[in-house]
C-alpha cells in the first residue's frame, strides 16, 4: 500500500507545487498526466525519497519516509522502489548483464540469474546481454532502463515516460510487461506519460 498526503514542494520559492493525495493498493496502477512544468517528475522524486517534501509525507507499506534518515531512505529505496527514468542512466563501464546484476545486488543480495535472463528475454534484450550499454539503440536502452526498474521486484514502480522511444510492437510488450510484473510482484505502479498508446491500456489516472 502506497499513500501520499498533502505533498508540497517548491523550487527556491519560485514555483509552489501542491499534489493531490494518491493511494495505491498492491498491484494497482495509475497514470499521471498533465502539461510540462506542473511537477510530474517532482512528484516521482518525492515519492522515491530523492527529494524531501517541504510538507506532507509518503508512506510505503506502513513506513513513512519522513521517519527515515538519509541513509535509511537510500537503503529503503534500493530495496522497495523501482525507478524508470525519462533519461537513461547506466553504469557505462559495465555491460548490459552486469548493469542488471548490479541492480539485483544492492542492498539485498537477490542473486537471481534466472530472473535476469527471463526479464531480458521478455524485453528482447537476451541477445544483447554482453554488449556495452553504449552499443544499444535508443529503444534497447529504454527497455534496459525498464528492466532495471523491475528486476528487484519492488513494491512501488515509478516510471517517467517509459515508452517515449519505443515502436508500437515494443510499446505493447512493455505495457504488458509492466502490468504482468505489477500483478505477479504485487507492485504498485505509477506511470507519468503523454503516450496515447499507454493511456488506452490504463484507466486509473490523475491530472496534475
Amino acid at each position: 500500500m502506497v499513500e501520499t498526503s498533502n505533498l508540497y514542494y517548491t523550487y527556491e520559492d519560485v514555483t509552489a507545487l501542491t499534489f493531490p493525495d494518491i493511494a495505491l493498493t498492491p498491484g494497482e496502477h495509475m497514470l499521471v498526466m498533465g502539461p510540462s512544468g506542473v511537477g510530474k517528475t517532482t512528484l516521482l522524486y518525492l515519492m522515491a525519497g530523492l527529494l524531501p517534501p517541504i510538507r506532507g509525507n509518503v508512506v510505503i507499506d506502513g513506513t513513512g519516509l519522513n521517519m527515515l534518515s538519509r541513509k535509511e531512505i537510500d537503503k529503503f529505496r534500493g530495496e522497495h522502489i523501482g525507478l524508470i527514468f525519462q533519461q537513461y542512466h547506466f553504469i557505462k563501464s559495465l555491460n548490459v548483464s552486469d548493469n542488471l546484476h548490479l541492480r539485483q545486488t544492492f542492498p539485498k543480495s537477490t542473486n537471481d540469474k534466472k530472473r535476469l535472463h527471463e526479464l531480458a528475454e521478455r524485453l528482447g534484450l537476451a541477445e544483447h546481454l554482453s554488449k556495452k550499454v553504449t552499443e544499444l539503440s535508443q529503444g534497447q536502452q529504454q527497455r534496459l532502463s525498464i528492466a532495471l526498474g523491475l528486476i528487484h521486484k519492488p513494491k512501488l514502480v515509478l516510471a517517467d515516460e517509459p515508452t517515449s522511444n519505443l515502436d508500437d510492437v515494443n510499446c505493447i510488450k512493455v505495457i504488458n510487461l509492466l502490468k504482468e510484473e505489477a500483478e505477479i510482484c504485487k507492485s504498485s505502479l505509477l506511470i507519468i506519460t503523454h503516450d496515447l498508446r499507454v493511456m488506452s491500456h490504463f484507466h486509473n489516472r490523475i491530472e496534475l
Partner: peptide, 16 residues
C-alpha cells in the same frame, strides 16, 4: 556524477 546518483537510487549510501 550521474552514475553515482544512479547508485544512490539503487540503495547505495554515501558511505558505500
Amino acid at each position: 556524477k550521474q552514475e553515482l546518483a544512479l547508485l544512490r537510487t539503487y540503495g547505495l549510501g554515501i558511505g558505500k
